[in-house]
Design a protein around this nucleic acid. Structure first.
Lengths: 99, 99
DNA sequence: CGAATACATGGCAGATTGGCCAAAAAGGAA
DNA sequence: TTCCTTTTTGGCCAATCTGCCATGTATTCG
């Protein structure tokens, strides 16, 4: 297989991996409805603040979210909104699988 | 959050995780163009046969592929073809991200 | 300045993953 | 049966992931 084509799969795998976690999906889903502070996301996810912060750092490193500081509060937002399509896509597979 | 809604994210995360690997994406992509023997997939992926077999077992356990034995050869096929939509979806995100 | 708030980061432990090798299974052919 | 081919499984190890705790950093307030 051509190296550049193979590389496309590597990039796709990295992206899927970045999303393949319950907490991160929760976060992405929440952010798809508008930006949100880390504290609010922590409440949503229900884990330690440091854990949530690391999930956010991972999403940021993959270019999925971006942050904005306002005073001591940091707000995150989706910068690739089409990432929400993954939910539709996944649900379709889950539905087809259950038949 | 409601337990059943939360559970949906758990299932989605499991599915994404099952796909989030270069070799498994290669396999799914190949199978989306028709069924294929393990040996052929091994050639495509370029790893040990046992490794490929384990990737296939994982995909099967997640209801993504199914197998059929013919003599000593085992053929795999996609049983949730819409899983290919993930490629479209991922490429869209990757494209949006690069802008 | 110091104290408080809101996040991020470093470090560590336990669990999971992904690879190879060797051995077992399952069929088919002789 | 025995041998050969194809695939699966078990074992092992190195690497990665994910959580919490403790600490560090940035900002605001008094």
């Amino acid at each position: 297989m051509a190296p550049e084509k193979r590389n496309a799969f590597v990039k796709q795998a990295r992206l899927l991996k970045a999303l393949a976690h319950e907490s991160r999906l929760l976060i992405v889903d929440r952010l798809s409805r508008g930006e949100c502070s880390v504290g609010d996301l922590r409440e949503l996810v229900g884990m330690d603040l440091s854990t949530v912060s690391k999930h956010l750092a991972l999403l940021r490193a993959h270019g999925i979210v971006a942050d904005r500081r306002q005073g001591t509060t940091v707000y995150y937002r989706l910068i690739t909104p089409c990432v929400s399509n993954f939910f539709t896509c996944a649900n379709q597979v889950l539905k087809e699988r259950s038949r």
